[in-house]
Simulated assay, not measured.
Amino acid sequence: MKTPLYDFHVEHGGKMVPFAGWAMPIQYKDSLVEATLHCRSNGSLFDVSHMCGLTLKGKDAVKFLEGLVVGDIKGIKDGQGSLSVFTNEQGGIIDDTVITKVSPTEVYLVVNAGCREKDLAHIGKHLEKFTADGGDVAMDVHDDRSLLALQGPAAAETLGPLMDLDLSNFFFSHFAKLDIAGIPCYLTRTGYTGEDGFEISVPGERAVELAKKLLESPRVRLCGLGARDSLRLEAGLCLYGNDLNESITPVEAGLTWTIGKNRREACDFLGGEVIKKQLAEGVSTRRVGLVSTGAPARAHSDITTPEGEKVGEVSSGAFSPCLKKNVAMGYVNKSHGKAGTQLKVVVRGKANDATVTKMPFVPNTYFKTAIAAS
Rank of each mutant, 00 (worst) to 15 (best):
F171E: 05
G135L: 04
G226F: 10
F171M: 09
Y192F: 15
S146C: 05
K212C: 08
L187Y: 01
A154R: 01
K125M: 10
K177G: 02
A207W: 13
C185D: 02
G191P: 10
D136A: 04
E199V: 09
S146K: 08
E195G: 03
I180K: 04
A121R: 15
D144S: 01
S217M: 07
D136T: 05
K212Q: 15
R206E: 11
V111Y: 12
L215F: 03
C185T: 13
A121K: 15
L147M: 14
T188A: 12
A156E: 15
S201F: 11
H126G: 09
N112Q: 13
R145Y: 15
P218Y: 08
D179H: 06
Q151G: 10
V220F: 01
P203A: 09
D179V: 05
L165N: 11
H174T: 00
A154S: 09
A176V: 12
T131A: 07
H142L: 14
A149H: 00
E128V: 00
D140S: 14
L165C: 10
V220R: 06
L167W: 11
D164F: 05
T193H: 11
A181L: 02
Y192G: 05
E216D: 13
V208P: 15
A154Y: 00
L109Y: 11
A156L: 06
A156G: 07
P184M: 00
V208A: 13
L147D: 02
T190S: 15
G224Q: 02
V141W: 12
D143Y: 14
R189K: 14
P161Y: 03
A176M: 08
P184E: 00
R145D: 12
